[in-house]
Design a protein around this nucleic acid. Structure first.
Length: 754
DNA sequence: GGGGGCTATGGGGGG
DNA sequence: CATAGCCCCC
């Protein structure tokens, strides 16, 4: 066992220490904001490992992949590299990884496609049409969320049709045939070898449930210790899977859940606060620990949060407190228009940067809806403040990027009908609507995928030749994907499909942006292929296939695109800010109909959720909290007038800064112009002082322990050890002295120095 | 089969 | 306002 450099137990308060040391049996930790929840989780895992539990017997389910990665890095500092053999990730990514090995047992290909929300909706639309239903009544978004809700509650299409409550609600909404769409939708996904996000959970459940003797036992034995973060945002199905993993003859039920009912903000996607409330009833002898001391925020902020959350009906009783009496009171910016709000917030940021010497990355602007980002973007650009927007229409949702990805999906899984429909006639190759509709019909009649139709049925006339050429194109792509790495295969796809030529023909600014986006996608794949650093589990062979790339990008969360080393102001939705903290936070758009959202106004439960969301927003702030609202703003083309948010009145007078703000110092800027639609690329790795032209990579068999090496990304370092799989542990000068990077020599960009 | 232009409609949060 | 879907015309 590796010597521990310091005693982690001494870094914990009494309650935290108890939660860390209680390693056997079910444990529930109720953790208020900033109460050291992450610290408890990481030290608990470190403690498990130091107690002799094998890392690969530990499964940690987090809310983002980034959170999992950071947790591993922190644990590594305490117990050393073996920490990397533990399993940690989101529910979706861990289950996807397991299903990639086991899916054939439940009738899916191991190379299954993951359907995103758009794929699901377009499939639902198609089914609605073939059933002869009115697509306006059967709104695909509404139907999708019904199906999603059913799946999240383990309701099969058959059970759905037998469920009076569900059926009568559908009748009330004039959508009585929803159950039929659900049935067809499930069959079509299966036929396409595709899983939607809910399926990653549902099929994982099926896998365990239907294979009780072998597979279920295997994973029960594997995951002896379970930790679940943000438990308040799990749904019924997720809890059922956890139960399957922990409930068996002789189980010690070593499950530790961490959460805060006051921060439950995902009921719209099926999360139920019931899970946290029912946990104590689901297991025998649950030990509960409440973490109530807030180490993050100052008095004003904690007081405001406490006062606010009291307006909610139901909650687990707790008293959040802080001993940080320093810090400013909460400022409120009141303005007439949304544009003015943008300017005043930018002013505020500039002022804080000057007065308190804040770095950009210590500041965040949080909003209720992603659409609000544009105005702040304009003003920050005007003020030359570097910013980064998370979420919203992300890079991978851009049309040109999705088109390329659809070809890749089709190459990996030709049964993927949604991908096929997207590209069969893009770029144009003379396969028209009629032909495609016929194809869909034939596929449906024979209950096979469209691809199977294309390759088995003889067509006549014009269509025959055109369809034949398309099949040949995809087959050529498949051959390249087999023979070459993901980058080269992607390059072939982008060129041979004709996409890149088509985009290059458009010389407008937008057109150039699209070409740039495709280039960025290719760069991203190359980076994926060439990356020599191991960040995931050592136990699992590194998979650099195109299928692996596709899985990675479809399960990325908004926070996962974060590159910490870039000094930018963060802009994101409050939902996306969950779990994060900033020295200074601006929560903007505090108006009725916006925050709380107009969608929530009719239901007290939904207002409570909006309030919890606001609670999450203000508790992200460590030291400076600024709130703002505008009397009027443009929404969907119209000027709207809204009252200040009711939540503002729920904050205590004593926390608020009531001094009248001086007129903004920068009133000379005038109204911002709307600047063109710039392509937003994923952030590149930071620039290093290494000259690539003099860099010569050393062959892997020439690198040995004790060598001083130069790495293109991490700079100078020393090779500490090399294991049997040619993974080198290297300590880099410019990184934290405790952090060792594990570099795969097979892909390494290392130069041995004399 | 392809393209252009018009209209209706949505309108939130995300793995 | 943005966009999807539709109709109509070539």
């Amino acid at each position: 066992m590796q010597e521990v450099g310091f005693s982690y137990l001494s870094e914990l308060n009494e309650k935290q220490r108890q939660a860390v040391e209680h390693i056997h049996g079910p444990v529930m930790v109720i953790a208020g904001p900033g109460s050291g929840k992450t610290r408890v989780l990481t030290y608990r895992i470190a403690h498990l490992i130091n107690s002799g539990i094998a890392p690969w017997n530990i499964l940690t389910l987090t809310f983002t992949n980034k959170a999992a990665r950071e947790m591993k890095e922190r644990i590594e500092k305490v117990v050393g590299q073996r920490a990397n053999r533990m399993w940690a990730g989101t529910f979706h990514s861990i289950f996807a990884r397991i299903l990639r090995v086991e899916a054939h047992l439940i009738g899916y290909p191991n190379d299954f496609t993951i359907y995103d929300t758009d794929d699901s909706k377009s499939l639902i639309r198609e089914i609605t049409k073939t059933l002869g239903l009115d697509p306006k009544v059967y709104n695909n978004g509404a139907v999708r969320s019904r199906i999603s809700g059913a799946k999240s509650n383990l309701i099969t299409p058959k059970l759905y049709a037998e469920n009076d409550d569900l059926m009568s609600l559908d009748r009330m909404n004039r959508r009585p045939m929803t159950y039929k769409i659900y049935e067809k939708y499930a069959a079509r996904c299966k036929r396409a070898g595709a899983m939607d996000f809910d399926d990653l959970l549902l099929q994982m459940f099926r896998l365990l449930y239907e294979n009780p003797n072998d597979v279920r036992t295997k994973y029960q034995m594997q995951f002896q210790y379970l930790l679940v973060d943000e438990f308040q945002d799990t749904n019924f199905l997720q809890f059922e899977i956890l139960k399957l993993l922990t409930e068996y003859e002789g189980s010690q039920q070593n499950i530790c859940i961490v959460g805060d009912d006051a921060q439950s903000i995902y009921s719209f996607r099926g999360a139920t606060i019931e899970n946290i409330l029912q946990f104590e009833n689901s297991y025998m002898n649950v030990a509960t620990y409440k973490l109530e001391q807030n180490y993050r925020s100052t008095q004003s902020i904690v007081e405001a949060a406490n006062s606010l959350i009291k307006f909610n009906k139901n909650q687990i009783q707790k008293k959040i407190w802080t001993d940080r009496l320093d810090g400013d009171k909460i400022k409120l910016i009141k303005v007439m228009t949304d544009s003015e709000e943008g300017r005043r917030v930018a002013d505020g940021i500039l002022e804080q940067k000057n007065r308190y010497h804040l770095a950009n990355k210590e500041i965040a602007i949080l909003y209720r809806t992603n659409g609000q980002s544009r105005i702040f973007e304009e003003w920050l650009r005007k003020y030359n403040i570097a910013y980064r927007i998370y979420g919203g229409t992300s890079f991978y949702q851009r049309k040109e990027v999705k088109d390329c990805i659809a070809y890749m999906r089709l190459t990996i899984n030709p049964k993927d009908d949604e991908a096929l429909k997207r590209v069969i006639n893009y770029p144009r190759r003379g396969i028209g609507k009629t032909t495609i509709e016929q194809l869909i019909q034939i596929a449906d009649d024979n209950n096979v995928s469209i691809w199977d139709c294309l390759t088995t049925i003889q067509f006549n006339g014009r269509a025959k030749q055109k369809l034949g050429k398309f099949v040949q194109l995809i087959q050529a792509m498949q051959q390249h994907a087999q023979a070459e790495n993901a980058y080269k295969a992607a390059l072939f796809i982008v060129r041979q499909s004709g996409i890149i030529d088509l985009l290059k023909a458009d010389n407008s600014i937008e057109g150039k942006g699209r070409v740039e986006n495709v280039t960025s996608l290719l760069d991203g794949i190359q980076e994926f292929v060439e990356d020599d650093e191991i960040v995931a589990d050592e136990a699992i062979p590194v998979d650099k296939s195109m299928a692996s790339f596709l899985q990675t990008i479809s399960l990325m969360t908004d926070q996962d695109e974060n590159k910490d080393n870039i000094d930018t102001v963060t802009m994101m939705s409050v939902h996306a800010a969950k779990g994060l903290e900033y020295k200074s936070v601006f929560v903007v758009g505090l108006e009725e109909n916006l925050f709380p959202s107009f969608m929530a106004l009719s239901s007290p439960d939904q207002i409570d959720e909006e309030r919890r969301l606001f609670y999450v927003a203000i508790t992200r702030a460590e030291q400076y909290l600024t709130l703002s609202y505008a009397n009027s703003r443009y929404q969907y083309g119209n000027m709207r007038f809204n009252d200040p948010s009711r939540f503002l009145e729920e904050l205590p007078e004593s926390s608020m800064d009531n001094t009248v703000l001086k007129k903004s110092p920068s009133a000379g800027f005038g109204e911002p112009k709307i600047i063109g639609n710039f392509a937003r690329k994923p952030a590149k790795a930071p620039v290093l002082q290494i000259d690539p032209s003099t860099f010569v990579a050393t062959a892997m068999n020439k690198i040995k322990e004790g060598d001083n090496v130069l790495h293109l990304k991490f700079g100078k370092g020393e090779v500490l050890s090399i294991d049997e799989r040619f993974v080198a542990s290297i300590r880099f000068e410019q990184l934290n002295a405790n952090a060792e990077k594990r570099i795969m020599l097979q892909y390494a960009k290392l130069q041995v120095l004399d």
